[in-house]
């Protein structure tokens, strides 16, 4: 264990460099730079609010905030798991030549996406101010679902990274799975519209996190049951991901 920590400390600088590289390169060539992180969710939320806001009867004056909370969290989960999945293959050249602890690659992918995700929360703050969603003390609770979201993304990312080394079509399968997850996350519809099938949403741990994040934003108490379930899934996925990755990592080089 001590050896692992020592090794991690030695490569801490590499982790930092990789995170920096991801963020820098993502925005280097676009004129608007980091501003895109803010503009992109804002524009898509406008579209979604327009489409789904006119479809349903407007009971929620802060419908864009509702969409934005779900969309930002889903986008983070989707982007970070996708880039973690590809991280081993896209760094194959390095992995084949020099020894580096391999988990650094998926970890840096999940972290760099988290940084841009946190930045994009500025849009949410802006929307809350414009639509007069008053912040309450409950807002501080938002840290919990966000931290769990990070853990869940890291756990799933490690599992996917391992599988994708051996099975390249995993990227397409995961794309399909993500679509299913998106529709089961109540991003742009209210869970009540599902009527008696609403319980099914709670099987989706990502929805449980979105639900509790929304509670914090709107100033309501947590749904402890679903938060507990999401926490359990997060911890289990991290343990499974790290275990699977550690067990298979020596075979990576033969398959990339």
């Amino acid at each position: 264990m001590q050896n692992y920590i020592k090794n991690f400390m030695r490569y801490r600088f590499l982790l930092k460099e990789l995170v920096k590289k991801d963020i820098k390169l993502k925005y280097r060539r676009s004129v608007l730079g980091l501003f895109w992180t803010l503009l992109e969710p804002l524009l898509t939320t406008c579209v979604l609010a327009f489409v789904f806001g006119t479809l349903k009867s407007k009971s929620d004056h802060a419908f864009p905030v509702y969409i934005l909370t779900g969309r930002l969290m889903y986008t983070y989960y989707s982007n970070s798991t996708k880039s973690a999945m590809k991280s081993i293959r896209s760094n194959a050249a390095m992995i084949k030549k020099v020894y580096v602890p391999k988990y650094i690659y998926p970890l840096s992918a999940v972290i760099s996406n988290f940084v841009t995700f946190l930045l994009s929360l500025i849009v949410l703050v802006g929307a809350m101010i414009v639509l007069r969603v008053e912040p309450t003390l409950y807002l501080f609770g938002a840290v919990a679902p966000l931290a769990l979201l990070f853990l869940m993304a890291f756990g799933s990312g490690m599992i996917l990274a391992t599988i994708a080394v051996f099975f390249r079509d995993m990227e397409y399968l995961w794309g399909v799975a993500l679509m299913l997850i998106m529709y089961c996350s109540a991003i742009f519809y209210a869970p009540e519209t599902l009527g008696s099938n609403e319980w099914a949403l709670h099987l989706n741990p990502l929805y449980c996190l979105i639900e509790n994040f929304r509670a914090a934003v709107y100033g309501n108490p947590f749904n402890m049951e679903s938060l507990g379930y999401a926490a359990a899934v997060s911890v289990v996925s991290v343990m499974a991901g790290v275990g699977l990755f550690a067990k298979q990592q020596d075979k990576f080089i033969l398959n990339i």
């Binding site: 490569y11 600088f13 590499l14 930092k16 460099e17 990789l18 590289k21 820098k24 390169l25 280097r28 050249a93 390095m94 084949k96 030549k97 020099v98 580096v100």
Partner: peptide
């Protein structure tokens, strides 16, 4: 082999150094 082609030489010094 560990260079990133979009990075400048100076940035790659830090990146490759970190890899090593």
């Amino acid at each position: 082999a560990g260079f990133d082609s979009q990075y400048t030489g100076a940035e790659n010094i830090y990146l490759y150094g970190a890899v090593l």
